[in-house]
């Protein structure tokens, strides 16, 4: 996920947020890299889930590093590590 693919990433996240009311699962096994804009989109989507939460499965280590740096202990996000 870089500037090249940012729009499709954001669109996918907002579709997810619109479809689910309870727990949203985001499976990221095949994702090699996420930059700060991508991590921001994920965090902001999670914060906007109405009463729900997001389970982020198998994210690349960069994503965890950026979430930890700018959104430590965000209650809406649960991470299942690789």
């Amino acid at each position: 996920m870089t500037e090249l693919t940012r729009r499709s990433w954001e669109d996918a996240l907002s579709r997810l947020a619109g479809e689910h009311t309870g727990v949203t699962y985001v499976e990221l096994t095949d994702l090699v890299f996420v930059d700060v804009a991508g991590a921001t989109a994920l965090a902001v989507t999670a914060m906007g889930l109405p009463g729900g939460r997001m389970v982020v499965e198998h994210p690349p280590p960069h994503l965890l590093r950026v979430l930890d740096m700018f959104w430590p202990e965000l209650p809406q996000i649960e991470v299942v590590r690789r």
Partner: peptide, 20 residues
């Protein structure tokens, strides 16, 4: 390790800033 991942993130941000 993490320092390598950090350098990769930093390069990604600076190169993206140049493009944007």
């Amino acid at each position: 390790g993490q320092r390598l991942g950090d350098a990769e993130l930093a390069v990604a941000e600076l190169t993206t800033n140049s493009v944007v």
